[in-house]
């Protein structure tokens, strides 16, 4: 369970570029919640996710993960129990290392990096079995450099890596936005599969309203740093893209083209 309490953040305080992003934002994700987050540009979706991950510090507020206060932990310390998939498929993997080596780095998440061998034979077998169900043929390419993979393949690999050690929280930052529609669907299907298999508490930002509606059990809409809609269960199942658009209009939220097309 993730509890965000009284989050405040102002960028560039005291300058003409001052921007208040959050004023006392609170949100609780229950264990096993799969929450999709939508909102226009500048609504604060990515900022919120980055603050949970620890990429930026915040001015005031508290973060509790499964009852433990993680407010003061650095990004890499939080990463020990979080999975994070970025929008840019190049950011989640290392192109100079092989597929197996990338997975071996994720396998040791939360552990000290020692002078033991980076990868064992047993692990290679494990990774082969792990990659085979993806149907991307990656299990035959374990020793190939990740730099040779396509964006979609890299994003699928990043997802596997983010969930290889079961995270207490999975953060997905528009992780299908940079992919073509077909690949995006494959990655989204894999996301659903992994989240359901391990009952992961998940926060997924998306620009695509249809994806936001049909994925997960709870939907949050943000505008100007506030949560303007928070629906789950039946209410979410009943909601339609036009409902969401109407709500956007009401709140004068800035819509961008991508979302309308979604």
């Amino acid at each position: 369970m993730l509890e965000i309490k009284g989050l405040c953040k102002t960028f560039n305080p005291g300058t003409i570029n001052e921007k208040k992003v959050f004023e006392d934002l609170s949100l609780t994700l229950n264990s096993g919640d799969f929450v999709t987050v939508i909102g226009g540009n500048g609504a604060g979706k990515s900022t919120l996710l980055n603050m949970i991950a620890g990429t930026y510090p915040f001015d005031k507020g508290q973060l509790l993960l499964d009852g433990k206060d993680i407010t003061k932990l650095k990004e890499y310390e939080r990463a020990a129990f979080m999975g994070h998939v970025f929008q840019d498929p190049l950011l989640g993997t290392c192109s100079n290392l092989s597929i197996a080596e990338n997975l071996s780095i994720a396998r040791r998440k939360g552990k000290r990096r020692t002078l033991r061998r980076g990868i064992t034979e047993a692990e290679r077998e494990e990774y082969r079995a792990l990659l085979a169900p993806l149907g991307l043929g990656l299990e035959e390419r374990l020793t190939e450099k990740v730099g040779l993979l396509s964006g979609g393949q890299r994003q699928a690999l990043t997802l596997l890596m983010a969930t290889l050690v079961r995270p207490q929280l999975l953060l997905l930052d528009e992780h299908t936005a940079a992919l073509d529609p077909k690949t995006a669907q494959i990655v989204l299907d894999l996301t659903n599969e992994l989240v359901q298999r391990d009952q992961l508490t998940t926060l997924m930002i998306t620009h695509n309203m249809r994806d936001a509606l049909k994925t997960g059990n709870r939907l949050i809409m943000m505008s100007e740093g506030k949560i303007i809609l928070d629906i789950n269960g039946e209410a979410k199942k009943q909601a339609t893209v036009s409902d969401l658009l109407a709500l956007f209009e009401q709140n004068n939220a800035s819509l961008d083209d991508k979302m309308l097309l979604g």
Binding site: E77, L90, L91, G92, S95, N96, G110, L115, R116, R117
Partner: peptide
Amino acid sequence: FFNTEFGYAIVACGNNDHMIIANGVS
């Protein structure tokens, strides 16, 4: 050295520090 756990982490960090931070290493 560059085939140890620590060595892999250094190579990954040089290539892309987002990735290595997201995997829990400073």
